[in-house]
């Protein structure tokens, strides 16, 4: 290669990389993006806490004595908060999954409808979680 070409300074070229973990906090996603990543996070969280949920189901069903044990566990405030978090995870995964099924069938695919249904999923899942929370903490 000639000296002339080698001597030319390299032009600054824009570089595109995948988002880094440290950028997650100030990376603004549209509602549909939030629904998407929360769908994944809620699903993984439910997977991780599956043994706890199966254990609760077991204690609630096996006998009247184990049911009393189950009621005792659920009476703990910390457990209630964990259960509230899991309820949100389930309800979000549930609502976002139903949105997913509609979109699989080519419904509400354009940008505006996707935006609207994503907001709907976020609002409905939070509202249902509040309802579950009121029931859980004995308000009604």
């Amino acid at each position: 290669m000639s000296e002339a070409v080698r001597g030319v300074p390299k032009k600054e070229r824009p570089e595109f990389r995948n988002i880094h973990v440290t950028e997650l906090a100030n990376y603004r996603l549209p509602p549909s993006g939030m629904v998407s990543i929360l769908h994944r996070i809620s699903g993984f969280g439910l997977f991780l806490l599956l043994p706890f949920l199966l254990y609760l189901l077991q204690e609630s069903l096996r006998s009247e004595w184990s049911f009393a044990h189950f009621a005792g566990i659920v009476d703990n405030v910390f457990v209630k908060i964990v259960l509230l978090g899991l309820s949100w995870a389930y309800l979000h995964h549930f609502s976002a999954g139903i949105r997913h099924l509609f979109m699989d069938n080519h419904m509400a695919l354009d940008k505006d409808s996707a935006h609207a249904t994503a907001l709907l999923v976020l609002v409905i899942s939070l509202a249902l979680t509040v309802l579950v929370g009121l029931k859980l903490f004995g308000v009604f």
């Binding site: 043994p51 189901l57 077991q58 069903l61």
Partner: peptide, 13 residues
């Protein structure tokens, strides 16, 4: 393992 455990739970009642 969870599937087997589920069978055990469901048929314990």
């Amino acid at each position: 393992a969870c599937a087997a455990w589920t069978v055990q739970i469901l048929w314990s009642v």
